[in-house]
Amino acid sequence: MSDTILDVKKLCVSYRGEGGYNHAVRNVSFTLGREKLGIVGESGSGKSTVGRALLRLLPTAEITAEKLRFEELDVLALREKEMLKVRGRRMSMILQDPKFSLNPIRRVGEQVAEAYLTHFKCSKAEARAKAISMLEAVQIRDCERVYDLYPHEVSGGMGQRIMIAMMLLTDPDLVIADEPTSALDVTVRLQVLNILDKLVSERGIGLIMISHDLNLVRNFCDRVLIMYAGQVVESLKASELHLAQHPYTQGLLAAQPRIGGGRGRLSVLNRRPEWKEPIEVQA
């Protein structure tokens, strides 16, 4: 692929623990073009850690990789000062819960505008105008009013849209969305996803969607990586998820209740120790 945004080879993240290192992420390799890549797995499987490692947001962890290339940059070799110019500007992250990720004592609009002011030389009025037009782009009605609200005055869905606006304002090339909609209701979730989808396709942004929701990933992403115990156990096209080979993926699919799916017992994952054995999947 000529326009590869991200090229990751054998990414490992480990934390120093008692008597050596605990490996949270082991040998994760994938490439990302201008597409939507989903990472699914249960909690504790290391999916969020991968996202954070890409942004080097893990100060206490040891991150190693054979290759971690973001466009022309070698992310692991960058100094922190250079990383500051990448983080939030060219690579940004949408966090799970707007209630906790917005500063409660500052107006939401200011927080959105701040993203722009940090990375571009411009006047406050310009940043405000930019922020407002971005709020409009995420379909917030009456943006001028919303700009001056505090986070506790907006609903969850609107908060998440504000987060998306903040992250897309600097026009990044890569957005990592860490469970962007799991705090939202089904109806609002679809709206937020549609907005995200539209913006991502219009601007040609690479998107990594971290989620534990198989339905969401299946509907929304182009490709899916399935993680278990820190490793990628399978990589599939989203449309071919039902052809999954790995027993863990099959187990996840079967455990999902469905509307009109009958009342039979839901199958429960039977975790096997051999799933933790090193395997390598190139995606």
């Binding site: 999902q256 209740p257 009342r263």
Partner: peptide, 14 residues
């Protein structure tokens, strides 16, 4: 809870 754990709890409840 995760899907896999959710299935366990739903089974238990029913």
């Amino acid at each position: 809870l995760d899907v896999s754990v959710q299935a366990e709890i739903l089974n238990l409840l029913s």
